[in-house]
Design a binder for these strands. Structure first.
Length: 439
RNA sequence: CGGGGUGUGGCGCAGCCUGGUAGCGCGCCUGUUUUGGGUACAGGAGGUCGUGGGUUCGAGUCCCGCCGCCCCGACCA
């Protein structure tokens, strides 16, 4: 994208309504604009990040054996009457009526709908297990939306639902999802800690929430440093495969034996036993639940068992706050000058800064670089001053900045800057492309 | 939903106490200038002062209602 043509409205000053770092930076870097309390429009730069996060989430869901579907945002109230949650959910659920005066709602979650789909289609235990997920907008009419996209009313969530024949199967699905989550967060450059959680309105008796570490997080967290040593992505010895039950067993044991708790659940007695203590601030970005037959029973979803008799499958549900993650990553990774995107979700791999638009050597070099990135670079071809370009590039947080100025261009060199470290090297165009991983 | 705050060109703010035709910085447009960390100068465009009502000869300013937004708390992916 050429910045001179891009719809990337950056701001020098922080709008008054934004108080926390990620919200300020998202507005200043032109990622989003607020349209009403807790509801945001995603602009090109922000949308690219959102899509990148979706892609990572999707890849890891698929790897864990989940199948992607897409359920609607609008649901009929009747489904929720079946489960009994239509009355339980309260004012947080946005209730609407269609033109025929039928009660509808904007889905805050999808247990009822997916259970309905399942019971219509799946008739035999032989078809189990199934894990279905979708990435769809949700609406929860929060009393007090805040922190930008971290606590919006409308938000993008990945929610998965597992159906298993029995408790053992459900636990296995639960563990697969947990592994998928740890892999997902690691790939996004985040340190995530799984913590035992209450099940809340979803119901059930096994639940974990995933907290990522960020200095500005909402809650204080205490955990065993052992979590920081684990590599969830490794395929070799000591790695974890979704396919091998023994791996899942070992993985789950790792996740549940090391100490981890938020301040509300902090147990000083157990904490004292932890050899390598770590504490910090955290943001919840995912939550998983096992709740057995809560919905299959209330909504009468059955499959025929081996003996031909109907059985209620055991369910779990698994959520990742996709749009929240955009804010959470920024909270975890920024400095005074702006955002520092992890490579895996950055909107662009690199920014190409042409310090002297109109200079034949600079223009040619920039065009060559821009073409080589094949759309994955933001080319700052504006006629602004160098300082403005440096400031905007830092603000937007591209992992690499390739600075092309008349001084270096004459010698066939560009300056390559790594946003995260500030490190700069003077290299040829070819070397720059190689170092950025574009060539 | 309880408590607090705030609303004035795109963004940040002053003006309100003590009513008299709306101002500053940034941004934007034009020109000159500058050219490796938000250059300087000159000219210019842009505002129903959130909204409805009231008081007054006259309301951004005073009074009442409503709405939006933000912060703290209770609640949450």
């Amino acid at each position: 994208m050429r910045l001179s043509r891009g719809f990337i409205p950056t701001l020098k000053e922080t709008p008054n309504e934004a108080q926390i770092a990620s919200h300020r930076l998202m507005l200043r870097a032109g990622l989003v604009r607020q349209t009403s309390a807790g509801i945001y429009a995603w602009l090109p730069l922000g949308l690219r990040v959102l899509r990148n996060i979706e892609r990572l989430v999707r890849e890891e869901q698929d790897r864990a054996g989940a199948q992607e579907i897409l359920m609607p945002t609008i649901q009929p109230a009747d489904l929720w009457r079946e489960s009994g949650r239509y009355d339980d959910y309260g004012a947080e659920m946005l209730r609407i009526k269609d033109r025929h005066d039928r009660d509808m709602l904007y889905g805050p979650t999808n247990e009822e709908m997916v259970t309905d789909l399942f019971r219509q289609a799946v008739k035999s235990y032989k078809e189990l297990p199934q894990i279905l997920y979708h990435i769809q907008w949700k609406f929860r009419d929060e009393v007090r939306p805040r922190f930008g996209v971290m606590r919006g009313r409308e938000f993008l969530m990945k929610d998965a639902y597992s159906f298993d024949l029995d408790h053992a199967g459900a636990v296995s699905s639960y563990r697969k999802m947990m592994l998928a989550y740890m892999r997902t967060f690691q790939r996004m450059g985040l340190k995530a800690i799984p913590m035992e959680a209450d099940t809340g309105p979803i119901g059930g008796d096994l639940s974990h929430e995933f907290i990522i570490l960020a200095p500005t997080g909402e809650s204080q967290v205490y955990y065993d440093a052992a979590f920081e040593e684990i590599d969830y992505l490794s395929a070799g010895a000591g790695g974890f495969s979704h396919e091998r039950p023994e791996d899942l067993e070992r993985f789950f044991k790792e996740m549940t034996t090391h100490y981890a708790a938020t301040d509300e659940k902090h147990d000083l007695g157990r904490w004292e036993q932890v050899a390598a203590k770590r504490e910090g601030r955290g943001i919840e970005v995912g939550h998983i639940f096992y709740f057995g037959t809560k919905y299959t029973k209330s909504m009468n979803a059955t499959v025929a068992g081996p003996d031909g008799k109907p059985l209620h499958p055991e369910m779990g549900s698994y959520g990742i706050g996709v749009s929240r993650l955009v804010g959470a990553v920024i909270e975890a990774s920024h400095d005074d000058n702006g955002i520092i995107w992890p490579d895996s979700i950055a909107p662009f791999k690199a920014a190409i800064l042409n310090l002297k638009v109109g200079d034949a050597a600079c223009d040619a070099m920039c065009e060559q670089l821009y073409a080589a990135f094949d759309g994955n670079a933001l080319y700052d071809d504006r006629t602004d001053r160098a300082g403005a370009k440096f400031a905007d590039a830092d603000l937007m947080g591209h992992p690499w900045q390739i600075v092309v100025g008349p001084r270096g261009a004459a010698a066939g060199k560009v300056e390559l800057k790594r946003r995260a470290t500030g490190e700069r090297v003077e290299v040829s165009v070819e070397e720059a492309l190689k170092l950025c991983g574009a060539a």
